[in-house]
Design a protein around this nucleic acid. Structure first.
Length: 975
RNA sequence: GCGAGGGUAGCCGAGUUGGCCAAAGGCGCGGGACUUAAGAUCCCGUACUUAGUGUUUCGUGGGUUCGAAUCCCAUCCCUCGCACCA
């Protein structure tokens, strides 16, 4: 219905026929830019196109200003996303075949986004999923949006040739001493292997906000066995007064390194993933332990075991040591337990034992008394165990305790120590003494895409890339100072990010698609680590895609030579079978295209991809190949949530967002591109509101019809002042755009092109401008400026206006000083000011004007102005100086005090001005300027406008307005 | 908590080497023009006040300065990142 598609396809085809998108080495300066390729996890949504289209627009602008641009694209498919997607489809398929009307689930999501039904069968294979989406991204998104990307260079992280490159990269990392091995605790699904737990929930279906938390396991001796409690606050050990066991839970006994531990069955299972040789040897109901005495670690006091239903068998070990002084749960439960008669009656605990459990004050901190837990409870008005506010109380006490607290004198060797230090010190001491152990757990339930619960698993020989390497870090930080990094906040912050960047697990086990780790086949290189150095691979991928070089030929000797210049072409040729000339050609390509000039990615990359991207370059490649620019873009968010006021993230994995082809159909690709470019700074989140997008579409439609109008009014009339004006203005806009784009400020380009220029050209037409030559010149510049953001529209208008060739091939005008006309610009400003003032007066007075009289300033006033200008040029303009100078003039002095008053005013007004700005004010012949515009003004104001010279004999001036006239500000009388 | 950034008129959003800032632009709203008509287009207006002026405004409270949205201090609130999601 929209009909945008035909025009879009037409031009896309012509660009492609001309090969405009293809990047080949020549003698122009080059510009290479990419967006961080997206992960293949399903359909993308309109939000993703924001950053992508910035890149195309920037590339187009660079092309138009003389650069040979390389804009390659690719896709990232490493991981288990496509595996789990394929599994889901396989699972849903039989059901769906029975009843195709059902459109929920994964299949429904695919179909809603335009997946053809007949594809479904093949999408049960992970690699088919990958290839299917690569195709969708290229054809339905990027080509659909008119990107001038070099499609010949497309690559995907699962291609065999790409794998060769990654393996080379990892060998280089090892040579650079960037790989290390050590134990690691990672979230993993028992079925699918390691999974990423993060807010985007790419790998998981539940629990994206969970954190991997480290607990200290405390071993409480009871006979030959240990009751094992998990704590986040080992520093509170001195405050323990009792031990909590849930009487309703059946605990298990497990063998751990020859010891017998009692924990909840859930904890036993979790521990199984983190400790070797754990076996369950028995069970014990919780109530059986009530009334026991167990020996606390470190302080070696005997603690009584009391019942507590708040012990969740799924959290920690399901057993809890009680520190009422600093744990609100413990405080309130202890109080409750003491009043509970069943304690004696049912569990037979002697009263004196119960009474002996008295809170011990161990931590002092500002804003709290001896018992922080009690204070928090009182403040929040908590009355009994189970109150949901206890969570808040706990958070408060923990947080304040950690940052503000100090250990009291009763804490043995830790007395006086700040809590944050005591915590580590005590944990270390406990571990050393064998009285404690370490246990990792997720803070909330996490469920894998496959439906399995996710656990923390210990991996002993995990490989890491050592991004903490001080030398490489330092080198990278130094280099960043020379880079063009947008926004400025990130430029300022990136050093900090690099400092904080530590070792990073780089390989995974399990069900995972990706490149095999070159030093040990059982590992697969994980998703972030194989996507850091890849921009350089786009130089190679062209040759592997067209078959000139095969994956087998991509040996290290080849990469070493073409990327690092090591060795020589002849021996590389001998080693790989690639022709010597071709090896040389690739080497030259690399030298020409690299480094990468711009890498653009979403803000989520700031602490993940970009630092890794930088450090891999600086660790492996020579300095002259280190990246030159980074740009970070923020998101398009979903509708704001009324309750929270926050925009929900449009989630690509959850579906529901506007599919891209549908939006392109509805608003036209250029409508969307304009929306992205102009809606806000790239460095701010934007809420997706259809009406807003639509208003940009309308804006573009108006421009299209306005261009038509311009073409039709152009006539062979002589050029006048207004032509000088519009030429001057357009020339100024060219400068604004050029300056803005030097800083990649696409939004400014859009503002200038789609708003400021439009307003000026409208004014030109309104003022009667229609000189054919002028109109053509204006259109040429204007349509050029439209090309980066709305290329299809620009081509259409370019053709319609009768220009040769395609605007995508054209060169953007240079700023031309000689086209600037201060007088013309000043003159129009003056006329507009007069009209605005008149309108103001008419509005305020509510008059129905019969005529408007404009009085220009008397000649003597102009003379004062001239004097002021001269002083300004000499840099000596001030009030006494100007007054003196004027009074020295006989003619002027005749006007008496009026002269000094005016001199005072003018001097004050222009003292900080520049001669360039002031000159037109002093020199403009206002009588002829205003007279020539009188007809126009009359029409606009709706009543006759007459211009009168204040010096004229027998001047009609019933209200004495002419006295108020000043050069640059004629007096107005409205009757 | 640590790190980064931000609070501007009905809304979005420019503006921060202090002055020309009542503060761009867009949207919305009001009025007008055109029109059979219009959700289309164009023009004007949109803090309060006013013959083109003046007054009070840029989270809040202080301060520096001849002069502050722009600098300093304090304070409240908000957003983002904090690790294996590109």
């Amino acid at each position: 219905m929209s009909g945008y598609g035909d025009i879009e396809r037409k031009w896309q085809q012509r660009w492609s026929e001309k090969g405009l998108n293809e990047a080949n080495r020549d003698d122009r300066p080059k510009f290479m830019l990419i967006f961080a390729y997206p992960g293949v996890t399903g359909y993308l949504h309109v939000g993703h196109m924001r950053g992508f289209s910035y890149v195309d627009a920037i590339g187009r602008y660079k092309r138009m200003t003389g650069y040979n641009v390389m804009f390659p694209v690719g896709a990232h498919a490493t991981g288990n996303g496509s595996i789990s997607l394929a599994n889901k489809i396989r699972k849903e398929l039989p059901e769906w075949k029975k009843d195709k009307s059902k459109d929920d689930g994964t299949i429904g999501y695919l179909l809603r986004n335009g997946c053809p039904e007949e594809k479904l069968e093949s999408l049960t294979e992970p690699m088919n999923v990958v290839n299917f989406f690569c195709d969708v991204y290229v054809n339905e998104y990027w080509k659909r949006f008119g990107f001038l990307a070099d499609w010949r260079r497309f690559t995907c992280t699962l291609y065999p040739d790409y794998a060769k490159f990654i393996q080379w990269q990892f060998r280089k990392l090892r040579q650079a001493d960037m790989l290390i091995q050590k134990p690691y605790f990672a979230p993993a699904c028992p079925n699918c292997g390691p999974v990423a737990v993060d807010a985007s929930e790419t790998d998981i279906s539940k629990g994206g906000n969970a954190e991997n938390q480290e607990y200290t396991l405390l071993k409480f001796k009871h006979g030959d066995e240990y009751l094992v409690a998990a704590t986040l606050r080992p520093e509170t050990l001195y405050g323990q007064v009792c031990f909590w066991v849930n009487p309703e839970v059946e605990y298990v006994k497990i063998k751990v390194n020859g010891e017998t531990w009692i924990v909840s069955p859930q904890a036993a299972q979790k521990l199984g993933y983190q400790k070797d040789g754990i076996e369950t040897v028995g069970k014990i109901p919780g109530r059986e332990m009530i009334g026991w005495k167990c020996t606390a670690p470190m302080i070696h006091r005997d603690l009584p075991v009391f019942p507590a239903k708040f012990c969740d068998p799924d959290v920690g070990t399901g057993l809890v040591t009680s520190v009422p002084s600093d744990a609100p749960d413990d405080w309130i439960s202890l109080e409750a337990v003491k009043k509970d008669p069943t304690l004696v009656a049912e569990y037979g605990i002697p009263q004196d034992v119960i009474d002996s459990a008295v809170p011990i004050s161990i931590i002092s901190m500002e804003g709290y008394g001896d018992f922080p837990a009690k204070d928090a409870i009182d403040r929040l008005g908590i009355k009994e165990p189970g109150d949901p506010l206890l969570v808040e109380a706990k958070k408060q006490v923990y947080k304040d305790g950690y940052h503000l607290g100090r250990m009291k004198d009763n804490c043995g060797p830790y007395a006086g120590m700040p809590v944050d230090r005591a915590k580590d010190a005590m944990k270390d001491a406990l571990l050393k003494a064998g009285e404690a152990d370490v246990f990792h757990d997720l803070t909330e339930e996490v469920v894998c895409r496959c439906g399995q619960r996710v656990y923390i698993r210990r991996i002993d020989d995990q490989w890491f890339i050592n991004y903490a390497n001080p030398e490489v870090t330092e080198r990278t930080k130094e280099h960043c100072k020379t880079m063009d990094i947008q926004p400025a906040e990130y430029y300022n912050n990136v050093h900090g990010v690099l400092d904080w960047f530590r070792e990073r697990a780089c390989v995974r086990l399990g069900n995972w698609l990706g490149t095999k780790f070159p030093y040990d086949d059982k590992w697969i290189i994980e998703a972030i680590s194989d996507s850091t150095l890849y921009p350089i691979y786009y130089i190679i991928s062209k040759y592997t895609n067209d078959g000139e070089i095969t994956a087998d030929q991509l040996k290290d000797s080849f990469f070493d030579y073409v990327f690092l210049g090591k060795g020589d072409a002849a021996s590389v040729s001998a080693d790989t079978g690639i022709k010597t000339e071709l090896v040389e050609q690739v080497r030259k390509d690399v030298e020409y295209w690299y480094p990468l000039d711009l890498n653009l990615g979403g803000k989520e990359h700031m602490t993940v991809h970009f630092p890794a991207f930088l450090m891999n370059h600086t660790a492996i490649l020579p300095k002259e190949m280190w990246p030159r620019g980074i740009m970070v873009n923020w998101y398009i968010t979903g509708k704001k949530n009324a309750a929270t006021g926050k925009g929900d993230k449009i989630s690509k994995s959850k579906g529901g967002a506007q599919p891209i082809p549908g939006a392109a159909e509805k608003f036209g690709v250029d409508g969307l591109r304009l929306y992205y470019a102009h809606i806000a700074s790239p460095f701010a989140d934007v809420e997706w509101v259809e009406e807003t997008v639509y208003s940009y579409r309308q804006k573009l439609d108006r421009i299209i019809s306005f261009v038509g109008e311009l073409n039709s009014i152009a006539a062979d009339v002589p050029a006048g002042e207004i032509d000088k004006w519009i030429i001057s203005r357009m020339n100024g806009h060219v400068k604004v755009i050029r300056d803005a784009m030097d800083k990649l400020d696409l939004r400014q380009l859009a503002t200038t092109t789609y708003f400021d220029m439009v307003n000026d050209i409208r004014w030109y037409v309104r003022r009667g401008g229609k000189n054919r030559e002028t109109v053509k010149a204006v259109l040429r510049t204007w349509i050029n400026a439209m090309m980066p953001v709305t290329p299809h529209t620009a081509e259409e208008l370019w053709e319609q206006s009768g220009f040769d060739g395609m605007v995508s091939e054209a060169q953007f005008p240079e700023y031309d000083e000689s086209k600037f006309s201060a007088d013309a610009e000043y003159g129009e400003d003056l006329i507009r000011n007069i009209m605005a003032d008149s309108a103001q007066i008419i509005k305020v007075t509510g008059m129905q004007p019969s005529r408007v009289i404009l009085y220009t300033a008397s000649a003597w006033k102009r003379k004062v102005m001239d004097n002021a200008l001269e002083l300004l040029r000499e840099g000596k303009l001030d009030i006494p100086g100007l007054t003196k100078r004027c009074m020295a003039d006989e003619d002027l002095r005749r006007n008496g005090k009026a002269v000094s008053d005016l001199a005072k005013k003018i001097a004050a007004d222009y003292i900080r001005s520049t001669p360039e700005k002031m000159r037109p004010v002093a020199e403009t012949d206002e009588v002829s300027l205003l007279s020539s515009a009188a007809a126009f003004m009359s029409e606009e104001i709706g009543s006759p406008v007459e211009v009168m010279d204040s010096d004229a004999e027998g001047l009609y001036d019933p209200k004495g307005k002419s006295k108020a006239a000043v050069p640059g500000r004629p007096a107005i009388l409205i009757e």
